[in-house]
Nucleic acid binder design. Structure first.
Length: 596
RNA sequence: GGGGGCGUAGUGUAGCGGUUAACAUGCCGGCCUGUCAAGCCGGAGAUCGCGGGUUCGAAUCCCGUCGCUCCCGCCA
């Protein structure tokens, strides 16, 4: 080794020892006859002093050294002079007095400062990702990611799971997201697909009798990007045999709790994780992945709203819609009329953006005997207002928001307003982690365009046993044995108990409009496998990137991936994708269209 | 596929019809033996993303285009 110690480990007890350190020059402070170098490696920073009087050769080299040079220093650890300690540094009570210095490699001036975590243009960070990764923020995130994955591997190993790799070159499944295709040289005109997830393979591993499988699996989906979506991402893919819904949920809950409490510096808000029925989540939060760090909830106030003289509410309820209200505790306290009006305007703009025609507001009187304020105050009699406030538990200083429209619009508004209000009021604390299970999903969603049912999870999800008859009579009411784990407003895992009987699987194919002949061509291997003794099984797939993002307090999964793609799915460092040689295309039997 | 934001020295920003294009930081040189956001002095560094247009005159206004980003669609 070119070093005897790391730059993060020397303390007062090492004083007097001769050590050799190696790393990067984080900063250099030149006092003339005395030069200070903050030497950085992955473990920390140690101050090196180079004294012209006692080490003239080392000093001459230190004089040449610049930021990000890679150097090796040999010297003596000593306590810093009294009053010169730096309590902000882990190694701040000591310094290394250099006797010799070697420049292992010089460095050009970097395009941005390594020692600063200030904001930078993303394109620049991605182009020089290897430099960006040197920065403290990225090192912290990447190492946290390692620890999370390490915890998962150890945890599942203790629970009897086997880690098994599955192919990256697999078969296209047009049902889901758009596939990344890989042309076959050996089979002209035919293509592999990169897996959107190892779904089929893990189920086949259950048929194969492994009973408990997991994989830290790379998944690929050729869809447009979001802050929490990349074309390739990593899932903890796992599957178990002879389990019911509760078994999977208990396992994941134990694992997630351990990760937050033992690996991260975040606070777990609720233990055990609350369980919310899909329909209830929509009604209360307008979302199937609600942020549960705060308890803003929407309430159905249709009855009282329709009794008021506000025509919009009356007509909407008559048309079969609901009027939803959300109480914001203290939301109006100390606010002037003009401040409330401005707030309302901003929130209403958000509601209109989601398709609502308006957003009403109301706040109880501050003084006894006073009048409620708000855009709809005059439509409620004192008794009606009192009943409304009673239903909502509203107290003076609270702000109440109302929305009514068709369910889809109301849900969208509920979700958007809830998130926005939480942001404004500082209710979403990034140091807190709030998990919640969403259960009892509908098995299908109606696809009006294609005039068929779409699976709301995926087409291997088993129906609730008691809802099996509904497949023939009323598929839209059938619930799936599906469970999603939400965290801080993101979906961080989704799973289900799978269908393990061929006749049920074929019935599902029929309902989603998949011709049986086509289904056999695409999934024949699955259907056939199910006939060779398939154990009841189920699984789940937590998204590692999103989980680590939340544990790191980041707003974007790029911050926890070493080499992410840009929003246009490009690698700005290597320049991928790129054109290829005509010879390569020829071997693959591919010709490009003129417009490519 | 659609909508919004951004693009000005290496970096982060200001300037928003007429400026010598400004500030901070970094970089280069000089001084300096207790600094740690070191300090002081001096210096270099920008065809204002790219292309076109309007104008006597464009970093500034308009159109197009490229890149980054956020959102909608999409994401079994």
């Amino acid at each position: 080794m070119l070093k005897t110690h790391t730059c993060g480990e020397l303390r007062a007890e090492h004083a007097g020892q001769t050590v050799t350190l190696a790393g990067w020059v984080n900063r250099r402070r030149d006092q003339g006859g005395l030069i200070f170098i903050d030497l950085r490696d992955r473990w920390g920073i140690t101050q090196v002093t180079i004294d012209q009087a006692t080490a003239p050769d080392a000093h001459a080299i230190a004089d040449q050294v610049r930021s990000e040079y890679v150097i090796q220093v040999t010297g003596t650890v000593r306590l810093r002079p009294a009053g010169m300690e730096n309590p902000a540094m882990d190694t701040g009570e000591i310094e290394v007095e250099a006797s010799a210095m070697v420049i292992l490699n010089p460095a050009k001036t970097t395009p941005f400062l390594i020692y600063s975590d200030d904001k930078l243009d993303e394109a620049l960070r991605l182009k020089y990702r290897y430099l960006d990764l040197r920065r403290q923020r990225m090192q912290r995130n990447i190492i946290l990611r390692h620890r999370v994955v390490k915890y998962i591997r150890d945890f599942l190993d203790r629970k009897g799971f086997v880690e098994i790799e599955t192919p990256i070159l697999f078969k296209t499944t047009p049902e889901g997201a758009r596939d990344y295709l890989v042309p076959s040289r050996v089979h002209p005109g035919q293509f592999y697909a990169l897996p959107q997830s190892p779904q089929q393979l893990k189920q086949l591993l259950m048929v194969a009798g492994y009973e408990r499988y997991f994989q830290i699996a790379r998944c690929f989906r050729d869809e447009d990007q979001r802050g929490d979506r990349q074309p390739e991402f990593t899932q903890l893919d796992l599957e178990m045999s002879f389990v019911e819904r509760e078994d999977i949920m208990a396992l994941i809950e134990e694992m997630m709790t351990g990760i937050v409490e033992q690996v991260s510096d975040r606070q777990l808000v609720t233990k055990p994780f609350p369980r919310i029925k899909h329909h209830d989540a929509l009604e209360k939060y307008g979302s199937d992945k609600p942020d549960l760090r705060y308890n803003l909830e929407w309430v159905d106030v249709s009855a009282l709203a329709a009794a008021s003289s506000f025509g919009v509410f009356q007509e909407s309820v008559r048309a079969g819609n609901k009027v939803k209200a959300m109480r914001i505790p203290g939301g109006a306290a100390g606010q002037s009329n003009s401040q409330l009006k401005k707030l309302h305007q901003e929130l209403e703009a958000l509601a209109r953006d989601k398709g609502a025609k308006g957003l009403a507001w109301l706040t109880p009187a501050e003084d006894p005997g006073g009048e409620p304020r708000g855009s709809i105050a005059r439509f409620f009699s004192p008794e009606q207002a009192a009943a409304l406030f009673a239903q909502l538990g509203a107290a003076p200083g609270d702000l109440i928001l109302f929305v009514t429209d068709t369910p889809a619009i109301v849900y969208a508004v509920q979700d958007a307003i809830r998130r926005d209000v939480a942001e404004r009021m500082g209710l979403a604390d990034p140091r807190q982690i709030a998990f919640g299970w969403i259960i009892d999903f509908p098995l299908f969603e109606w696809n009006a365009e294609e005039n068929r049912w779409d699976p709301s999870h995926h087409l291997f999800t088993a129906p609730m046993p008691e809802d099996l008859p509904l497949l023939d009579t009323d598929p839209g009411r059938a619930r799936g044995q599906q469970y999603d784990l939400c965290c801080n407003g993101y979906e961080v895992a989704g799973g289900s108990i799978r269908i393990h009987r061929r006749e049920v699987q074929e019935k599902i194919f029929g309902l989603i409009g998949l011709d049986l002949a086509v289904a056999r061509e695409r999934f024949g291997h699955m259907l056939e496998a199910f006939e060779y003794g398939t154990p009841p099984h189920g699984g789940i797939a937590p998204g590692i990137d999103r989980l680590v993002m939340l544990l790191a307090g980041e707003a974007n999964i790029r911050e926890v991936m070493a080499f992410p793609k840009s929003q246009q799915a490009a690698d700005l460092m290597a320049g991928a994708p790129s054109p290829v040689e005509p010879k390569q295309l020829e071997e693959l039997h591919i010709s490009l269209l003129n417009n490519a």
